[in-house]
Amino acid sequence: MYNFEFEKPDTIADAVAALGGEEAQALGGGQTLIPTMKQRLASPATLVSLTGISEMQGICTGDDGSLCIGGATTHGAVAAGAGVYPALADLASHIGDPAVRNRGTIGGSLANNDPSACYPAAALASGAVIKTNTREIAADDYFQGMFDTALNEGEIITEVRFPVPEAANYQKFVQPASRFALVGVFVAKYADGVRVAITGASEGGVFRWTEAEAALSANFAVSALDGLSLPGDGMIGDLHGSGDYRAHLCAVMTKRAVNAAG
């Protein structure tokens, strides 16, 4: 990889200042960015590590009962510490492999918005709030397409707040070589309705399956999904599976998630 200046500030304010420099980029756990830089697909002049900022670490419960996770919290820490939201802890415990989970962070995953990553499905299905150094962004406004988000240049995800659902489950059909989701479906049931978010499938990145949401909000049962399907058009097609195959998996994994959520 090309060389760069490395900075590791202690505070969000210092990180924001460092990111104001020419061609500066934020570094979370580096589990995506470092491989990307090795392939020379990214070559920032400065990398600003966010792993030394203590105010971006950790998990707590907010006044409204929501689960608050610091942007620099690792997947391993979420797997171990998000017990009040079991489906989210379970999702975190199956990202990558154990060593990757000890470095990769929730903020890094959401900022990258890989179309096959797990966390975007959880954030969108939960109606999470993405808190940055300047504002709060609703998940529905945050995800804007493959690798595209509402984040501005130099904006940092400092915290993610998840409303805790009555019932939820994430079903991931693993692409075994990468351990990313070939298709992953997160179903979350709240008092005001059910949300279904699907990752890995669409060329537009994570999306809500509104037809399934309406059916499940009326009747939270696997049978409510009978006859519902998604079109293969606009789905990712590659050597691992065609668009039609992924569309089929969306319905299958949604049913499994509803079944497991009970």
Partner: peptide
């Protein structure tokens, strides 16, 4: 050297990491 194989696993502050996918400065 792409964080797939795990031959480079070491412990940093008590947890296992892939040392090919962590900067020395970190």
């Amino acid at each position: 050297d792409t964080s797939q194989c795990g031959a480079c696993v070491v412990h940093v502050d008590g947890v296992a990491v892939k040392s090919c996918t962590m900067l020395a400065a970190e």
